[in-house]
């Protein structure tokens, strides 16, 4: 099983509902976020293109954060989801400097925190909070190893990209373009 998420940049309007849903669901401390919206305006006026992306941890298959962690607190959990075990984390920040996406932060309690793909919800058969709440239904979540899953089927059908594939991290966050 390999969990992944696909986000349709053509449908996303950048409303930040996913951000608020995540903060509420996961009790993210005020001033921090586990997911965020990036808007990229590109081109020569007046030929401009706007891409809106809801970003979060890429749950990489070849995670530098898991590799760098000196205690094994950062680890691959069910379905390849990268998690931090807070009772093993010493807060050395090696994982934070190792992440090319800067997806991690230090929780005010001292351990390192990040997106969990809402594994606690997924285990109950629900969707991650950000996916469930998206008003334009631009996010798809599922198992890459199952060809009939929503995410496998949309990746089959649409053109997509990942972020900094040249960093060699094999991200599990796909952006439909």
């Amino acid at each position: 099983m390999r969990y992944a998420m696909a986000i349709d940049t053509k449908k996303c309007v950048g409303c930040s509902d996913c951000v608020v849903a995540c903060q509420t669901e996961n009790d993210v401390p005020i001033g921090f976020c586990r997911d965020w919206v990036v808007e990229v305006m590109d081109g020569t006026y007046p030929q401009l293109e706007l891409e809106i992306r809801s970003e979060r941890c890429n749950h990489c298959e070849n995670s530098p954060c898991v590799r760098c962690c000196p205690t094994g607190a950062s680890h691959y959990n069910e379905g390849g989801v990268v998690l931090v075990e807070k009772n093993k984390c010493i807060g050395c920040s090696a994982c934070i400097t190792s992440c090319p996406y800067d997806a991690r932060f230090v929780h005010p309690e001292g351990y390192v925190d990040k997106c969990t793909f809402c594994l606690h919800r997924v285990k109950k058969g629900m969707q991650p909070a950000c996916v469930a709440v998206c008003p334009t239904k631009c996010m798809y979540f599922g198992d890459l190893d199952n060809p009939r899953s929503e995410v496998s089927m949309i990746l089959e059908k649409r053109k997509w990209k990942t972020l900094i594939p040249e960093a060699g991290t094999k991200p599990h966050l796909y952006f439909l373009i």
Partner: peptide
């Protein structure tokens, strides 16, 4: 002129706008 403007909603302390986690 070709331009690319990136606007990010993320503003995590010590991470943004520039990483400064190691002092």
């Amino acid at each position: 002129m070709h331009e690319e403007i990136i606007v990010s909603g993320r503003n995590n302390p010590l991470i943004d706008p520039q990483l400064h986690i190691w002092h």
